[in-house]
Amino acid sequence: MVAYVVVPGIGGSGAQHWQTLWERRWGEAAVRVSPRSWDEPDLGDWVEAIDCAVTERAASSEDVIVIAHSLGCWAAAEWDAREKRTTVAGMLLVAPPNPAGDRFPRTAAPSFAGVEARPLACPSAVIAGSDDPYCPIDVAERFASAWGSAFRNAGERGHLNAASGLGEWEWGRAVLAGLVRE
């Protein structure tokens, strides 16, 4: 049985975001991390929230997959780099923002300053939009390479959030299904 740990970015992924729609579809097989603040992210707090959610899911499932969006990608990668209580079967990292870019939320999330892409300990895939305002596609591809992740270009879909109009985002679910099969 597969369980999913959902890690949104700043703001926590609203009602029309693909992460929220996937969670609804999966029911009890999915859990959203619960940091103290979605709007004033603290890296240590988000990493701890991921660890708690993964540990909880691992107790009742064979495989746990982390599904992160935007700033959540960096929290998930940092969680993977730290000593943790359990491991995951895979990670889907969608639309990671560029920490060196002008639009990175340094003021709202100062503890995320200086995050770096390092090899992940599990199979993973990165999906990025070719016109994401938070990260050029070539930079996202470099992150994928540094993480040891497969890379998928979603085309001109922006930041791959609710504003992108993805709905249930079947294409993203197909990439996820490939990761789960691996």
Rank of each mutant, 00 (worst) to 15 (best):
1 M>I: 05
2 V>I: 12
5 V>F: 12
5 V>N: 11
7 V>C: 12
7 V>Y: 08
7 V>F: 10
9 G>K: 11
11 G>W: 09
11 G>T: 06
13 S>E: 13
15 A>M: 11
16 Q>M: 12
17 H>Q: 10
17 H>N: 12
17 H>C: 04
18 W>K: 02
19 Q>N: 07
19 Q>V: 07
20 T>G: 05
20 T>Q: 11
23 E>Y: 00
24 R>E: 15
24 R>A: 15
25 R>H: 10
26 W>I: 05
26 W>Q: 14
28 E>D: 15
31 V>P: 00
32 R>E: 12
33 V>Q: 13
37 S>E: 10
42 D>M: 00
48 E>M: 14
49 A>L: 14
51 D>A: 09
51 D>R: 06
55 T>W: 07
55 T>K: 10
55 T>H: 08
55 T>G: 09
56 E>H: 09
57 R>S: 12
59 A>S: 09
59 A>F: 00
61 S>L: 00
61 S>C: 10
62 E>Y: 00
63 D>Y: 01
64 V>H: 01
64 V>R: 01
65 I>M: 06
66 V>M: 00
70 S>L: 01
71 L>P: 04
71 L>D: 03
77 A>Q: 02
81 A>I: 03
81 A>D: 12
82 R>N: 12
82 R>T: 09
84 K>D: 11
85 R>V: 01
89 A>R: 15
90 G>W: 09
93 L>R: 13
93 L>Q: 11
94 V>M: 05
96 P>W: 06
97 P>T: 03
99 P>R: 02
99 P>D: 06
99 P>H: 03
100 A>E: 15
100 A>M: 07
105 P>E: 04
106 R>P: 06
108 A>K: 14
109 A>S: 06
111 S>K: 06
111 S>I: 07
113 A>Q: 06
115 V>L: 01
117 A>T: 09
124 S>M: 02
125 A>F: 01
127 I>G: 00
128 A>E: 01
129 G>N: 08
131 D>I: 00
131 D>E: 02
132 D>H: 00
133 P>N: 04
134 Y>R: 06
135 C>L: 03
137 I>G: 07
137 I>H: 05
138 D>N: 07
140 A>K: 03
141 E>W: 04
143 F>R: 07
144 A>Y: 14
147 W>S: 02
147 W>H: 07
147 W>I: 02
148 G>V: 07
150 A>E: 14
151 F>R: 12
154 A>C: 07
155 G>R: 13
158 G>K: 11
159 H>K: 12
159 H>G: 11
160 L>I: 14
163 A>I: 01
164 S>F: 13
164 S>K: 12
166 L>T: 03
167 G>A: 03
171 W>C: 03
171 W>P: 10
172 G>T: 02
173 R>M: 10
173 R>F: 05
174 A>F: 01
177 A>R: 15
177 A>I: 00
178 G>T: 04
179 L>R: 08
181 R>L: 13
